[in-house]
Write a protein that binds this DNA or RNA. Structure first.
Length: 992
DNA sequence: GAGCACTGC
């Protein structure tokens, strides 16, 4: 039996090309061997997967009965509906209970023991890393790099069906003959040695590097493991040794501040690594380009080094020093410049890049190089010349300093991610570069992206002149009102297409003109630049026919890889959520038990944001045994935020959960949708970080071709009321006329405006008023910001209570979510002391107060009450910040929080919440169900609420979500007559 | 009687 499986797998993998893989994808389901150890109680059911997807078929019919995974299914279909069914069901239920209890216990134990081992593990992994560093030093970095380039050339030709066809190829005068095109295998070694010699010459310093031709490869944001691992590993060093020379840097002594000489020495040591980065040889051209033009758009691929080097290349340019300009608004002279800002979409990225660049420059973090993220600012107004910050932070600075006076240049990194933050920042920056900070002494703007969308961005920054004319003409008619988003989208996409043909930035087929050092010499206001990345080749495989159940398909593919592909090489599987991950983890573990003894073992690891930190870290550690393959089951978190080393095989289900907003009903929902092409490429790219890799797509090639090129920008998918408030508070009152890269639909914008008006943030003409300005300063959604402003009013007088509750609402769920029913019962009991008949909001307040009351045993207390300690700690941070902001907004000092909360007090708190959430209300109708007060839609109280099952006159809720049916989450009881003064403007004539 | 991807101020 075992041999049979073995052969079955082997057959599929003797030869490795797409055609064979087609067979592999369609081979019969993995048979489950008979001699599997009898399943322990926990394999008795197949919770989740079987229930959810009936199509799953994991074993052939004859083997079904042997399979613990399916025994339950066959049982239930076979047994007649006798009186024993009931007891059987009971039995099943109990078994299920036991199983989940066991699982929970196991997980808790695991977490605990891991936490204990952490110290030892760190020691161990650091030792390993030191060894690896030494090894890396021995291997010539240059050889490594050149080999990569050659492989890239070959890869790029063979894969990537998503090439743009209409690309002009430009012959290039100064290139090496054999380098450009398809190098036959025999030539490869020759090329490597040739390039190696060249590189060695370069390293000894004999003249500038001849411009090497490179090929565009899988787009992927530039991120080295040091950077990407960090969200999960707080230590400055990743525990995993990495062959990437950038990642394995000498580490600083942790104990005290390093001496200046030490810093210099380290900086010197790092210089060698920096010189190997693809961007290094282009620094002169970059500087030159920015002397000539104020805007530069750069396509920088994975590992090009753009994020770490750009600041250092520019910091000593003459235009960085402070200079006087005329502020057109006041007519007065102001002093501007002196610092380069580099924005990132994620906090960890900003912090780690700053740390790294400080090391490279040999300076203390916070002096010449610093960062600013929420809750953490390590930069100095006088000293800092390179500052990394999140895009949200840049927008925050815009609020108090509309000219961004501190900065000589702003670099927008990872622009292709198109978060609302980056999009708004780019709109504002463009306005500055062509307005108040334009001209010869103007602000420099550098936009860096990893996808071909850069060309669209270049167009966006270029079309200022046209736009101005257009806006003047269209002002009355309102361009967006009239045409809506479709026309805008259409316009931009056709623009980018024509641009591809004329632009020197090559796309995939344009091998001839791939030299980034060549700049477009034209009258364009935007300089364009391309820097190749460092990425190993990846073989792509597609499923031959559509896959009905991708969890099942992933299961088979994982085993196929495991049997057919050599070690080492870990497998990274992309799925959409925790549910799927847990289901697949269970299945793989079951089947792995039946593997032949001489087949390497597997170590299955989940990875998603909600997973406890200690368990996340396992992904970065070595497999517990030698000759063991790690199989990482991850959500989208592994696509951008986290880089796992050691991965050579990627399995991509082709789906992702995305938020969608339907403005008409004002409802946000989370849906499983197909990924975009660039997302799929990004995922595939994860297989080629350290060596050549393979990517198995669980969808057909035809399917791939129908995917959208890029992910829909966030601003087109979400509620934009918050974005509108940001715009208006920063001087852009005409939100319909703001120059978005992609404008939200007219419907979405007007819904947002309407909401803000109802909240009292805008006056009748749509201008922001005092209330709106206050709200805009708070790091909260407009609704929650409104609550805070209301709570600060003297007659309400419950500011510190409101802050506590809002802080609880703005961090991750502060309650644990136990899996087993027993645990849930236990949790209910433990939390009884917090329960209030008013509902969830006051319950949150009591939890916060309970946590506060603990002096030294906070963690224990949290554990006992099923409260998430990590969430509580970030809650405390957020509260500190909110208090700070509130104190700034009103001169009145925060009153000390009262010890008890009287019913009257509770009413006042809830009335404040109603000011921000009057639109999220429902009332009881005669049939005993709830219907929303606006729109009269049915809605039920979510089972997670303390008010679940209760019948109340009316309810208010913070969240509306649609899963199996419409649910209200975070619910409190209200009275109908409170609604009248919650938003008189909005409810004015309506019955309330 | 349900179950939520990922960020950010």
């Amino acid at each position: 039996m075992l041999g049979g499986i073995h052969l079955a797998f082997k057959d599929g993998f003797v030869r490795r090309d797409t055609a064979d893989l087609v067979n592999v994808f369609s081979i019969p389901p993995v048979p489950k061997p008979n001699n599997i150890a009898p399943a322990p109680s926990e394999t008795g059911t197949n919770k989740g997967r079987n229930r959810k997807n009936k199509k799953v078929e994991l074993s052939s019919p004859t083997q079904k009965e042997d399979s613990p995974a399916t025994s339950q299914q066959s049982q239930s279909t076979k047994s007649p509906p006798t009186e024993s069914t009931k007891s059987k069901r009971q039995e099943k239920k109990e078994r299920k209970k036991a199983e989940w209890d066991a699982k929970c216990r196991a997980r808790e134990d695991e977490a605990r023991s891991l936490a204990g081992k952490e110290g030892k593990l760190k020691e161990f992994t650091e030792g390993l890393q030191r060894k690896e560093e030494e090894k890396a030093k021995r291997i010539s970095g240059a050889t490594q790099k050149n080999r990569t380039e050659v492989q890239q050339l070959r890869f790029a030709q063979s894969s990537l069906p998503e090439k743009k066809a209409n690309v002009q190829t430009k012959p290039e005068p100064e290139t090496m003959a054999g380098d450009a095109g398809s190098a036959p295998d025999a030539e490869v070694d020759f090329l490597i040695s040739k390039k190696k010699r060249q590189r060695e010459r370069e390293l000894i310093g004999s003249g500038p590097a001849p411009s090497a031709k490179r090929k565009r490869k899988l787009g992927e944001p530039d991120s080295f493991p040091l950077l990407d691992n960090s969200p999960l590993i707080p230590s400055p060093k990743p525990p995993n040794p990495s062959p990437n020379p950038v990642a394995s840097s000498p580490s600083l002594p942790q104990s005290n501040l390093p001496h200046k000489a030490q810093l210099r020495a380290q900086s010197h040591a790092l210089l060698k690594q920096r010189e190997l980065l693809p961007i290094w040889e282009h620094q002169h051209d970059l500087r030159q380009a920015l002397r000539e033009k104020n805007i530069l758009v750069m396509l920088g691929e994975t590992g090009s080094g753009k994020s770490t080097q750009i600041g250092q290349f520019l910091v000593s340019e003459p235009w960085v020093k402070k200079q006087r300009i005329n502020d057109p608004r006041t007519g007065r002279e102001v002093l501007v410049g002196g610092c380069i800002a580099i924005t990132q979409p994620r906090r960890v990225a900003a912090v780690n890049l700053a740390r790294r660049v400080a090391q490279e420059m040999g300076v203390h973090l916070g002096d010449d190089v610093g960062y600013a993220v929420r809750f953490d600012n390590k930069s100095s107004i006088e000293k800092t010349r390179i500052k990394f910050l999140t895009d949200g932070m840049l927008l925050q600075e815009l609020l108090h300093d509309p000219l961004l006076k501190r900065y000589s240049a702003v670099v927008v990194d990872e622009a292709h991610e198109r978060t609302i933050g980056t999009d708004l920042a780019m709109g504002f920056l463009r306005g500055l570069v062509y307005g108040a900070r334009g001209g010869e002494k103007g602000l420099k703007l550098i936009v860096m992206s990893a996808t071909i969308e850069v060309e669209r961005m270049a167009r966006f920054f270029e079309r200022e002149k046209d736009m101005l004319e257009e806006t003047v003409v269209d002002r009355e008619g309102d361009r967006f009102m009239a045409n809506g988003v479709d026309e805008v989208l259409e316009k931009s996409s056709s623009a980018s297409e024509e641009e591809f043909t004329g632009c020197h930035i090559d796309s995939d087929e344009d091998k001839e003109a791939a030299d980034g050092s060549e700049r477009e010499v034209s009258r364009s206001t935007v300089a364009r630049f391309q820097v190749p990345g460092r990425q190993f080749p990846i073989e792509l495989y597609h499923a031959p026919e559509p896959v009905a159940d991708y969890v099942d398909a992933a299961l088979r593919t994982v085993f196929q890889i495991h049997y057919g592909e050599p070690m080492p090489g870990d497998i990274l599987v992309f799925l959409t959520g925790q549910d799927e991950i847990e289901a697949l983890q269970k299945l793989i573990k079951e089947y792995a038990q039946g593997m032949d003894k001489n087949v390497p073992k597997m170590c299955v690891l989940p990875l998603y944001a909600a997973l406890p930190q200690v368990l996340q870290q396992k992904v970065f550690q070595h497999a517990p045994e030698r000759n063991m393959r790690k199989v990482i089951l991850a959500t989208n978190i592994a696509e951008t935020s986290v880089t796992v080393s050691g991965v050579r095989y990627v399995v991509d289900c082709g789906k992702v959960k995305t938020k969608r907003y339907r403005p008409r009903i004002g409802l946000e929902s989370l849906l499983v949708t197909p990924v975009s092409k660039s997302s799929a490429m990004q995922r595939a790219g994860r297989a080629g970080r350290e060596a050549a890799g393979k990517c198995f797509r669980l969808f057909t090639e035809e399917n791939f071709l129908t995917l959208a090129d890029t992910t829909v920008p966030e601003i087109l998918r979400c509620d934009v009321s918050s974005a509108i408030l940001t715009l208006k508070s920063r001087g852009q009152d005409d939100v319909l006329g703001f120059d978005y890269i992609d404008a939200p639909s007219r419907e979405s914008l007007s819904k947002g405006l309407e909401q803000l008006f109802a909240l009292g943030a805008l006056d009748k003409t749509g201008k922001i008023n005092a209330m709106g300005r206050k709200m805009a300063q708070l790091p909260l959604s407009p609704g929650l910001a409104r609550v805070l402003v209301a709570a600060a009013e003297p007659k309400m007088d419950c500011l510190s209570e409101a802050i506590d509750i809002i802080a609880a609402l703005s961090v991750e769920n502060i309650f644990m979510t136990p899996q087993s029913e027993d645990k849930r019962e236990e949790m209910k009991e433990a939390q009884q002391e917090f329960e209030r008949r008013e509902g969830d909001h006051l319950m949150l307040l009591l939890v916060v107060r309970g946590y506060d009351a603990q002096q030294s045993h906070k963690k224990l207390w949290a554990e006992k009450h099923f409260v998430n300690d990590r969430a509580m700690r970030s809650l405390i941070e957020a509260r500190k910040q909110l208090r700070h902001y509130c104190q700034r907004l009103s001169s009145i000092p925060l009153p000390p929080p009262p010890q008890t909360i009287t019913p009257d007090h509770g009413v006042r708190i809830l009335k404040c919440f109603l000011k921000g959430f009057f639109h999220n209300t429902a009332r009881l109708v005669p049939d005993g169900s709830y219907r929303t007060i606006m729109g009269s839609q049915p809605v039920g109280i979510h089972p997670s609420s303390a008010l679940f099952g209760k019948k109340l006159e009316a309810i208010m809720y913070n969240e509306f979500l649609y899963t199996t049916k419409p649910f209200a989450r975070l619910v409190s009881a209200i009275q109908m007559d409170w609604l009248v003064d919650a938003s008189p403007m909005y409810l004015g004539g309506a019955e309330a």
